[in-house]
Amino acid sequence: MLDYRAEFDAEVALEGGGELRARGFRLDIPHADVTEVEVTALLVAALAPQRVERAEVRGIRILAEPHPAAGRTPVERVRYVELSHVIEAGLVTFPGLPGPEITPHLTREASRGVYAPGTEFSIERISMVGNTGTYVDSPFHRYPDGTDLAGLPLERLAGLPAVVVRAVGGERGVTAEMLAHVTVAGRAVLLHTGGDRHWATPAYATGAPFLTADGARLLVDRGAALVGIDAVNIDDMSPATCGERPAHSLLLAAGIPIVENLTNLRQLPPCGARFTAVPPRIAEFGTFPVRAFATVPVEDPQT
């Protein structure tokens, strides 16, 4: 069994001024096939609590080393935090869109005539729009030539270092000013607005929190990997906007997936968690529900 490290050169610009340059820098990596995006995200996480404005890596070389003998390396303990809403028949996620229809395709009773005695199965059928429950938007949702669900790279969806932006009880819009001092490069930026407290009620879509255009532009410019929100839409849906969707347009044009209708973000620390929200690989499809969750390190009481 092998452990892997990445060796690379790096240039890092820190928020508030200052630069770091490294040659032959080494980091532990989870597998041998890491991408440049993954290595950059790991570098940014390793530099915490320093806030990184821009990070570039090059000349990546993968090193394999024998795994230490059993009992010599402590196992990381984590707790899992569920960040998805439950999908049920008839659930209304977005005003004007139909709720899912869940019906039996093969009942357990009917299956008894198909399988051996004592063996039975149930197969269900679901009909729903992609914008149901907690779901991810791919660039194809907004742009006809954008990446669809099948093309979304896993490094944009799984095991991302997360930063949680608290925006509860203030203005509806999450602005660039509110994000200015947050390290976002290579991270899942999760906007905790408290909007999920109204889930599955008429109030959920009324005066909902959102990400402003200048906030979205900052996240694009600083290299966020993914952006999520615990509200009905990442854009302002008020009639005064006349249907404009600047956050969707800017983020998806930059290839940044969006996860809407998150919940339980209050249970996450501001940083240190890892975020995952992976949809099925469906071609020519723009949005689909995800099982979003985070892992949070737990201190070993024996250490």
Rank of each mutant, 00 (worst) to 15 (best):
L157W: 02
R112A: 06
T93R: 11
P104H: 04
V114Q: 09
P289N: 04
G133K: 08
R217A: 15
R51A: 15
D300Q: 05
A216L: 02
A89C: 03
P68W: 05
L250N: 03
V86W: 05
D3T: 12
D145L: 14
G272L: 04
G169H: 09
C271E: 14
R21E: 14
F140H: 08
G207I: 01
P246L: 10
T276P: 13
L157Q: 08
P100I: 08
T263N: 07
Y115K: 09
A225M: 12
V298R: 00
F8P: 15
L154Y: 05
V39M: 06
E11Q: 13
L27Q: 12
V182I: 06
R266C: 09
E120R: 04
E177L: 05
A200K: 13
R61S: 11
E7R: 15
G215C: 06
S238D: 15
L211T: 01
Q50P: 01
L160Q: 07
D300K: 05
I282H: 10
A6Q: 15
G228Q: 02
P144N: 01
T241P: 03
E260S: 08
M1Q: 03
V57C: 09
R54T: 13
A10S: 14
A13Y: 06
E260M: 00
T35K: 04
P297N: 03
V37I: 06
A240C: 03
L27C: 10
V298K: 00
E19F: 07
R217F: 06
G96I: 14
A283K: 13
A188I: 02
D236H: 01
E7A: 15
E76D: 10
A22M: 15
D236Y: 01
E53P: 08
L149P: 04
R197T: 10
G59I: 08
H248N: 15
Y115T: 07
R291F: 11
I60L: 11
Y4N: 06
F94S: 04
L190V: 00
A176C: 04
D9Y: 10
T206S: 08
P74V: 11
T107D: 07
E284D: 02
A225P: 07
L27T: 14
F288Y: 11
V296G: 00
H141I: 01
R281P: 05
A225F: 08
L63F: 07
I258C: 07
A13S: 14
G59Y: 09
L211C: 02
M237T: 11
